[in-house]
């Protein structure tokens, strides 16, 4: 049918066009800008310069990158530790309950993340809901100092990013053939050993997806450490934003973004290479 061919071409070119226009081209522009020189008033000068990339080796910036990676890693691990059991329970529950539980995971999405972060402030602050309730119930005497601490930041990050971990995990665990688990126990493996040797390896794709979906945004999220953490540490996201909006050093902002993205890309490449190579056998 000629019509369907035209339609197909239209849709595909539309999608490709969209990706090119709003995805590929901006990234290319960014990469280009990162290699230019900064101009105090014109913002950028059409002169090739590796200055921005060279400045990335500054120890202060190195420390900032390290802290950002650490924070993102912690957030990812916490989301995994919380998200996996939850996803497991949802996957094993009967369909009706599962649907309700998943709905509860999705509902926060209907509200903007920034607003939700401010809502967390209202909950966590010294005279907020949490402290007022705990004092009212007599559990504590003085308000808990959660606001403006690392704990508050992690609460915010997990609250925001947990659904991204739960959903891929749920998909992977749901697909798991529970007869394999029975076979494992039949062969003498305890529940824990079965979990380690069968469930984890077979749900690994879900784990990786979940981790990626949490780690990468966590790396760039600056408003949560700002609002909940008191903005005492500069993370990658803050740095890039400051470069673009305050310091007006576009090449530096571009260079740091591109550098980080490239690093992520390389990590992923190494991981996938490894996966492919060892995909043949999983050594016990």
């Amino acid at each position: 049918m000629k019509d369907s061919l035209i339609f197909r071409r239209l849709v595909i070119s539309g999608i490709l066009g969209w990706i090119a226009l709003f995805g590929a081209i901006p990234v290319l522009l960014l990469t280009g800008v990162s290699f230019l020189q900064r101009h105090p008033s014109d913002l950028i000068e059409a002169v090739f310069s590796m200055e921005s990339y060279a400045r990335l080796s500054d120890p202060a910036i190195g420390s900032m990158l390290f802290k950002s990676i650490m924070m993102a890693t912690m957030a990812t691990l916490l989301c995994l530790l919380i998200g996996y059991p939850f996803a497991y329970i949802v996957a094993r529950a009967n369909k009706c309950h599962a649907r309700t539980m998943l709905l509860f995971v999705m509902i926060p999405f209907w509200t903007n993340t920034l607003i939700r972060t401010y809502a967390l402030v209202a909950v966590l602050k010294a005279d907020g809901f949490l402290n007022t309730a705990l004092i009212f119930l007599g559990i504590i005497d003085a308000p808990l100092k959660i606001m403006y601490t690392q704990t508050a930041v992690f609460i915010g990050l997990i609250y925001t990013l947990l659904p991204f971990m739960v959903l891929p995990l749920y998909a992977a665990i749901e697909k798991l053939d529970h007869r394999l688990l029975e076979a494992s126990r039949d062969l003498g493996a305890s529940r824990w050993t079965t979990f380690k040797k069968i469930t984890i390896p077979l749900t690994m794709p879900g784990i990786v997806s979940g981790c990626m979906l949490v780690f990468l945004p966590a790396l760039g999220m600056f408003y949560i450490p700002d609002i909940l953490g008191g903005a005492r540490t500069m993370f990658l996201g803050n740095f890039v934003r400051d470069q673009f909006l305050i310091a007006r050093d576009l090449p530096m902002g571009a260079a740091s973004s591109i550098a980080m993205t490239s690093l992520m890309g390389i990590m992923l490449l190494i991981y996938y290479r490894n996966l492919r190579r060892s995909g043949r056998t999983v050594r016990l």
Partner: peptide
């Protein structure tokens, strides 16, 4: 269904 572990040889 045999239930062989797909990720092991």
């Amino acid at each position: 269904s045999y239930a062989l572990f797909p990720h092991m040889d």
